[in-house]
Nucleic acid binder design. Structure first.
Lengths: 218, 218
DNA sequence: GTCAATATTTTTGTATACAAGAAAGCAATT
DNA sequence: AATTGCTTTCTTGTATACAAAAATATTGAC
């Protein structure tokens, strides 16, 4: 599926914003960016629309578009919602998951564990993504899967940052095991609770990380 | 806040699609619609982008945009997700809700009840919306509130259709009372369960409605 | 008559031109 | 000197023009 220029620009801008390439509240200059990407204003504006819809940017009519870096509060809120959605996935998956998918989860967890031992952050991250993706899919609810992927993507930069936290990786793995175990038992409630806690703790850990970084800077 | 032409068109198209003004899979002709709305293709295309992001329309590069009427399956999936999100709202609200908001919910429920007695569908619908809006807000999570509103809007046409079901209104009211009661008691778990059931049953009822309509047509 | 290859038309994607609104700078008045 | 009103400039929103890709029609061969 061939993509168009405006899509590529949207992705590029999204990455730029998420990596912190722009300050919060900064106005995105159409002409400047048009030059930078070597396109006209038209595809840029289409890209802006996409970013506005996903909440990374605010469009004020006749004024321009401004980047909206989610602060710690909004970030926590997003994790809270993510926790609910993933918990729902887990609960539904407990009833619907296939034997094959369970095998897959086990294998993914093993690779994830190996990555932890090897201090392979990229590997850990990849397998962790896979673990969650499988669960979204096994919820059996395509719409839910879609929504989870969307939110997951929004939280991407935070989650990535969080990898720096020592000790968190091992704990996270233990939580994965608990989730799989609940799924194997077909216990929806337990799976949901385990998943909710797993995601919620990420949000909290990140919150602490941000707070400590801020504190260190003062 | 003045809005621009493309926003108005997006709203108009959204309404048209949701009311069933287009067949599923139908291609939206840019030129034709441009004439119809008396604008150029540019704002139309911006409107398309918005619709594509909210899932009402599918954009296939170099082919055009096609309306995507959600079928019964997708509709059920959406209700399932809505149920989860609203349940989360209820659970969070149980801990955070203000006395004033509780009063508000009571008042809204009374007006809702009155509308049921008076067979005032529009009134019922309006107060019902209000009930849910208050709960979203009282979750204390702005992001969750936003997501709920988005989904709520997507489900709008289905919910509307559902009003035709006799007897459902009274039952729905009883469910509202139960939710408020749980909130008053500060029982998050009970509030969440009541809310989940409340929304889920809407999805099921609607599913039956669709099935019966289909059956009648054969 | 059917299939295939090519030409034509249509339609999308992008660039540019134009119009209208907002911001900024300047001048005049108090 | 400060403030208000005007003018100028810059930016956004919309229209149109152009290019590239897809769909359709046409013609030729078998």
């Amino acid at each position: 599926m061939e993509r168009k220029r405006s899509d590529l620009i949207a992705d590029a801008l999204e990455a730029l914003i998420l990596e912190g390439g722009f300050a919060d509240g900064e106005r995105l200059d159409e002409q400047q960016l048009a030059q930078r990407f070597d396109v006209s204003r038209t595809p840029l504006r289409e890209a802006f629309q996409r970013l506005a819809l996903s909440g990374l940017v605010e469009q004020i009519p006749r004024r321009g578009v401004f980047v909206r870096q989610p602060g710690p509060v909004e970030m926590m809120e997003m994790f809270e919602v993510m926790a609910e959605l993933e918990a729902a996935c887990a609960r539904l998956a407990a009833a619907r998951i296939s034997e094959e998918a369970l095998q897959n989860l086990h294998a993914t967890n093993e690779r994830c564990n190996a990555a932890v031992e090897a201090r392979d952050h990229d590997g850990y991250y990849r397998e962790n993504e896979r673990f969650h993706a499988i669960l979204y899919q096994q919820s059996g609810n395509g719409f839910l899967e879609q929504e989870c992927q969307r939110l997951h993507k929004l939280l991407h930069p935070f989650r990535r940052l969080q990898l720096r936290l020592r000790g968190r990786l091992r704990q996270s793995m233990a939580e994965h095991e608990e989730i799989v175990s609940a799924l194997e038992a077909g216990d929806g409630h337990r799976a949901a609770e385990a998943m909710r806690a797993h995601v919620a703790v990420q949000g909290e850990k990140f919150h602490h990380l941000v707070a400590s970084l801020k504190h260190a800077a003062e």
